[in-house]
């Protein structure tokens, strides 16, 4: 077993996955603002310019729609671009390209042109970033048919899922929870093995409760599960990982066992992706449920600036409170 400092952070794991993909497949390109000499503002692309050259690791002009749009064009020509949006807060000028084109190029042309594109974007709060740098709007994109939305929650899953996203022949929006970019280390062998897309990861096994989450909220959710375990209550903890297309089978199977479910996400409540999971539980799992489904989420407010952002982000205490409420229901 490796000492903790010997493992990789999520940033390092993502970097290793990019290097692996680029060394295995000459069609893989890395594009974005400051991805070259600077190695990306979070250093995810560090060292790639030196190793793979300026043709394949390209600093783009500062224009998100152009980054997405030209990535679609070069993908249609058979390349495998991995485009970086510097922060998810800047992705909105590229939404037209992702929604009107990336998600449907295959469909519009009956498979004649395809879009094997990965758009990476750091997202979420908790690092005391400036305005417009902390939102979680994954549900907006999960609503778009044809656009895979993938969110890793650990260094090893980040490595495997990014490789899977690059290998995938269709567009993937890969959202990186920057609060846990460097929060922990994990042994990540550079095996080149992709992790499965469209599948939940089961992080804890339990009988009494199902906790469903993704991204950085894994931290608070696992802490809550740990606390509950100390009290003799065991929980399944599911990391959804691919929001769309959703692996509802695993979630339903868990709820059939536990009968109780809490969904945790950092994004705002209304229209958040938890609503989709809760609706599907109502449609397909109602008779398994022994308590109402609870959601622990950010509020329907603007994401506060750093002085107040801790009030917005779901805490372990809020997860525990919801879990206890659901467990007490009879």
């Amino acid at each position: 077993m490796m000492a903790e400092q010997d493992g990789l952070t999520m940033v390092q794991a993502l970097n290793a996955a990019l290097a692996r993909a680029m060394s295995e497949d000459a069609r893989v390109l890395v594009l974005g603002e400051d991805v070259g000499v600077d190695g990306g503002v979070f250093r995810v692309t560090e060292g790639l310019l030196d190793r793979f050259g300026a043709d394949r690791v390209r600093d783009t002009p500062l224009a998100e729609s152009a980054i997405a749009g030209l990535s679609i064009g070069v993908a249609a020509q058979g390349f495998r671009p991995v485009a970086e949006m510097q922060f998810m807060g800047f992705i909105y000028s590229a939404v037209d390209q992702l929604v009107s084109h990336a998600s449907r190029l295959r469909w519009r042309t009956r498979g004649r042109l395809t879009c094997p594109l990965v758009v990476r974007a750091p997202y979420g709060g908790g690092i005391r970033a400036i305005e417009h740098h902390s939102e979680s709007t994954e549900a907006m994109f999960a609503h778009v048919p044809g656009l895979r939305v993938v969110i890793p929650s650990s260094p090893a899953r980040a490595y495997g899922l990014l490789l899977a996203a690059i290998h995938d022949p269709d567009p993937v929006l890969f959202l990186e929870p920057k609060r846990i970019y460097r929060a922990g280390r994990e042994d990540v062998p550079d095996s080149g093995a992709a992790a499965p897309l469209d599948s939940c990861f089961q992080l804890r096994d339990g009988d009494d409760l199902t906790l469903v989450t993704w991204g950085a909220m894994i931290v608070e959710t696992l802490a809550a599960a740990e606390q509950l375990a100390a009290e003799g209550v065991t929980a399944d903890v599911l990391d959804v990982a691919t929001l769309s297309p959703l692996d509802m089978t695993t979630i339903l199977r868990s709820v059939e066992k536990t009968g109780r479910c809490v969904i945790v996400h950092e994004a705002a409540l209304t229209g958040g992706f938890g609503a989709e999971i809760a609706a599907r539980l109502a449609e397909h799992g109602l008779l398994s449920l022994r308590a109402p489904v609870k959601r622990v989420t950010g509020y329907d407010t603007v994401m506060p600036l750093p002085r107040l952002e801790h009030l917005y982000m779901p805490s372990t205490e809020r997860v525990l409170a919801a879990a206890r409420e659901v467990l007490a229901f009879s």
Partner: peptide, 24 residues
Amino acid sequence: REDFPICVPVASQVPHAVGVALAF
């Protein structure tokens, strides 16, 4: 086979041309 389809959202095809030209 490599030509792009008609593009209804105005000018959204122009960045695609940049990507195609980059491939060339």
